[in-house]
Design a protein around this nucleic acid. Structure first.
Lengths: 243, 243
DNA sequence: CGTAATCTTGACGAGGTTCAAAGGACGTGG
DNA sequence: CCACGTCCTTTGAACCTCGTCAAGATTACG
């Protein structure tokens, strides 16, 4: 297996290199004039190492972030030490909307890999959105998609067997990687088993067993963090309904 | 038991009668000038019977709704008939944000009681929000709170025992009723056991058993849909952590 | 190359679902 | 106003999935 973390990161950088902010930050459909406006908003780029926090719960929400490369997890820190992962953010996806309500973040955003992040100052973004209807619509769309994703996540957690949750998780991840322009069929998980477990409401053992089972059923090939999806329709079927 | 459905509804109407749109629709903190603007946006009021749908999954999201009275459930209709409830909307809470992403609703909104709903045309609202910074901030806040609620819901579903989920559900409901100005300590559940179960990722039997257990432990009084919370701190403790 | 972290696999037990039936609440019609 | 039927809720018992505890295999990294 010669697909190490470092190689993957280099791959990300190569792919990210040709992405302007407009493509990376707010997927498709923005007016060219608005794009220039949006590009001007980007305050700075931050580089983060794996494990570093982009922000912590309680921090004031002064900006919205978008990773150009690197994956993030959004973690609600529990008093009892048992943290729950409420979201994974792939490159190009908006990070930090969880602070909208109170003006303070409700969860930690932690990089799973070395990451490169752009910062969009919140007030400036809101002001720009007020002036530019297209941008506003786009922002609403992105926020709405985030809400929809949370709903799907909640639905995935309920009334679903362990292997169905894992199937749903992989199906979702796979689609998001495709949307990012990654080659379909296979990818490398940026997160550990226990982080998947914390996201799906399971234990790491159950996640591991589910992966093994899905592999035995012939729809996956699993080796460590490397995932090959051999039968996407069947995976989606297991994810979507009682199978 | 003289607190029938009809009486409860009358009670709601009485309380709603003195609420202007500004209070009912977007909790506190809007500029008086903006309030007038907001009041003008309200297109019409719809009356719905129990079980009637305000909208269905797939409908175009042309407006955002707020119930003046009556409770709603947001249901993601599953292909397999096993629908999951992703949210309950009490009077005064925003309904219909689930369509933001695709412009189409992702779930059914169904009245649990006879309901009275105001409609805020989406485009007009967005346009007004663009012009009025205070209203905009308020809208963002409401949306953010909705996102936060979904996160809490997701967290509640994971890694929590049945009676802890039920405790969390009742604690949340109780607080929301208080925020609405209802008398603290007790209320009548507008939804059936199986709807609670679909919301918490349990079966109706488990919900029933959990209620019985919480009652036996002395922190609740349960009789059918009537709930009296005898020991709020302990209920919150059970809800919040591993107890 | 060796150590530490991550992942897999096994056995057992607790909590939840399923299947089944009885007990109440509510609304309708007499 | 009471009786009846339907729906909702509660309770019981057996089965099953998943969590827990514990060891072993694999991978990652200095």
């Amino acid at each position: 297996m010669n697909t190490s973390n470092v190689l993957d990161f280099a791959d990300f950088q190569r792919r990210c290199g040709q992405l302007s902010v407009r493509q990376a930050c707010l997927p498709a459909g923005i007016d060219p004039i608005d794009q220039a406006e949006l590009d001007r908003l980007v305050r700075r780029r931050r580089r983060l190492d794996a494990g570093q926090a982009l922000y912590r719960a309680g921090d004031a929400m002064s900006a919205v972030h978008v990773a150009r490369c690197g994956t993030f997890k959004a973690v609600v820190p529990s008093a009892q030490g048992e943290a729950t992962v409420v979201a994974f953010h792939l490159p190009g996806e908006l990070i930090g909307l969880d602070g909208l309500g109170a003006g303070r973040h409700r969860c930690d955003a932690i990089a799973l890999e070395p990451a490169d992040v752009c910062e969009l100052p919140y007030e400036a973004l809101a002001e720009a959105a007020a002036r530019l209807p297209k941008l506003r619509a786009q922002l609403h769309r992105v926020v709405g998609l985030g809400i929809a994703r949370d709903m799907d996540h909640a639905a995935l957690l309920m009334r679903r067997l362990a292997h169905e949750r894992v199937a749903g998780f992989l199906d979702d991840l796979s689609r998001r990687y495709c949307a990012l322009g990654a080659p379909p069929g296979g990818f490398r998980l940026p997160m550990a088993r226990d982080e998947i477990a914390a996201y799906l409401g399971l234990t790491l053992e159950s996640v591991s067993r589910s992966l093994t089972r899905l592999q035995e059923d012939g729809m996956l090939y699993v080796r460590g963090r490397r995932i090959e999806i051999l039968d996407p329709p069947r995976l989606a079927a297991v994810a979507g309904s009682a199978a």
